[in-house]
Write a protein that binds this DNA or RNA. Structure first.
Lengths: 133, 133
DNA sequence: AACGTAATGTTATAATATAACATATTTTAA
DNA sequence: TTAAAATATGTTATATTATAACATTACGTT
């Protein structure tokens, strides 16, 4: 009876809650700071929770920012491929919904490379900032 | 007479030499270790050289690996957009030559986001490793 | 030559992440 | 239902990656 599939532990839930209520990606030590009132005391507790959340696809890491963001999609179960739009003005990060994996798979195949997953970080100006500037 | 355009300083050249002769991306402290015989003594000297080399497009950073790689292209002057194929078996990293910026620009425009630059890291299996396994 | 800019050298420290180990909790399966 | 296995926790210490601050030096421009 593996109902453990979707069951998060206390620390994992605590970290996920913080990320889901955050408007921007958070850094690990910012998460630590925010969760200290909830019993998390050491960096490792945060990193371990993040590792698990990333593994099950609930959280993604923005590599170029060393930051973490909760996934808003229904099923990023794989916890693998990610595509982000990052606003250079307001730091807003949104996940690109459109599936671009097949495109990358084709591009890779052209040079005889077997695509497995990807991380894409697109920088630019979001619609909000365009309007206000 | 601004011939300084392509003139690298001693530290910059030292760091670039190491990266160009490396077969894989190198981490900053690995570069430091390798360049100590050439007079570079502190991390900051490496990071400053890297910053400049990245700025002028001679070097790229692989964000998901905290590693640096010399650019093999003629003109990555911009030092902005990068696309890599990273082998999960042998860690070989190659730059995707085909220009994918226009594709991203279109994808971004669909959600009213002004594309400026990107970083793409594709993981998979390189042709060599496919053949040998 | 004198000024402004960029690069250097050096020490210290900040920010990000993992190792190691003891303990506790949960899951699985005999 | 309980013992073994697997997973998560708590804690301290430390490794890894990167920047701050400041004094000095080299270099291009006028």
């Amino acid at each position: 009876m593996s109902e453990a599939l979707n069951t998060l532990t206390k620390n994992q839930q605590t970290v996920l809650d913080i990320l889901e209520s955050a408007k921007e990606p958070l850094k690990a030590y910012a998460i630590l700071f925010d969760t200290q009132k909830k019993g998390i005391k050491a960096p490792l507790q945060v990193y371990r929770a993040l590792d698990k959340l990333i593994e099950i696809g609930k959280v993604h890491k923005i590599e170029s920012k060393n930051s973490y963001i909760a996934c808003k999609h229904k099923s990023c179960d794989a916890g693998t491929s990610t595509s982000f739009l990052i606003c250079e003005m307001c730091d807003l990060v949104t996940e690109l919904k459109k599936n671009v994996s097949s495109y990358f798979s084709k591009q890779s195949a052209e040079v005889n490379f077997s695509y497995s997953k990807h991380n894409l970080e697109i920088y630019g100006i979001c619609s909000n900032c365009k309007r206000n500037n």
